[in-house]
């Protein structure tokens, strides 16, 4: 039985095409890296200053001077480059990164994203998320459809402070996939076994249904 996380990762993998330059956010998005098939050649960017993240190092290869944005030890793949933080965000903000896949706390029907702070809780900081959502050519958000109380995280408008306004291109949850168009939010895929009505029942946001509605693959 596939977990919510498997379903999300499996679907998010389809967003990554051969030849892309991609930034994967910290947390679940990082797990996508390990699942990219070997025949898909992508350059993963780490905003602390590495284009071409390789696999985790072998024990004897561990190098304190080589980490990813999640502060994990990594390696560099063949063809990689190192650069400073201003250069890193020049490539992000300047629209040179094809795709950013980030986690979310709330996404609203107009494409607003909230994923960095909860009022009343200790604010840790936004890191590079605000730059990524405003700079990457395409922004895909992955998150569970509902919170632990069963409430929709897909909102008519975000209740949490925003990370970016109208920045999301696609939302992938464990139940459905939505695209954000000028005319609003569109349901493009539902998980096998779920109807459009099932999705409406767990979604606060208003959305229309694509005439070419498809089935989301179930994870392994």
């Amino acid at each position: 039985m596939a977990t919510s996380r498997d379903i999300i990762i499996n679907r998010a993998l389809q967003e990554i095409e051969d030849g892309m330059y991609v930034n994967l956010g910290i947390g679940i998005p990082t797990l996508i890296a390990n699942a990219i098939p070997n025949d898909r050649h992508v350059m993963l960017q780490s905003e602390n200053g590495l284009l071409g993240i390789g696999p985790y190092p072998l024990e004897h290869e561990v190098d304190a001077d080589e980490i990813n944005a999640g502060k994990e030890t990594v390696t560099a793949q063949k063809g990689a480059s190192y650069f400073d933080s201003a250069e890193s965000f020049a490539m992000i903000r300047g629209g040179h990164i094809d795709l950013a896949i980030l986690g979310g706390m709330e996404v609203a029907e107009n494409g607003d994203l909230a994923n960095w702070m909860i009022p009343g809780k200790m604010v840790k900081g936004m890191g590079g998320a605000m730059d990524l959502v405003n700079g990457a050519k395409r922004v895909v958000i992955i998150m569970e459809h509902v919170n632990k109380y069963g409430e929709s995280k897909v909102k008519s408008s975000c209740t949490l402070p925003l990370t970016g306004s109208r920045v999301v291109h696609r939302l992938i949850t464990d139940k459905a996939v939505f695209d954000f168009m000028d005319a609003g939010m569109v349901l493009i895929e539902t998980l096998a076994g779920l109807t459009v009505e099932d999705i409406r029942a767990v979604t606060e946001a208003n959305f229309t249904v694509s005439p070419e509605l498809e089935r989301m693959p179930v994870g392994e």
Binding site: P55, Y56, P57, L58, E59, V62, A64, D65, I67, G70, K71, E72, T73, V74
Partner: peptide
């Protein structure tokens, strides 16, 4: 010292 925050490795 160059302390490492998250030591992540893969198996050989």
């Amino acid at each position: 010292e160059k302390r490492i925050e998250r030591r992540t490795v893969r198996e050989a």
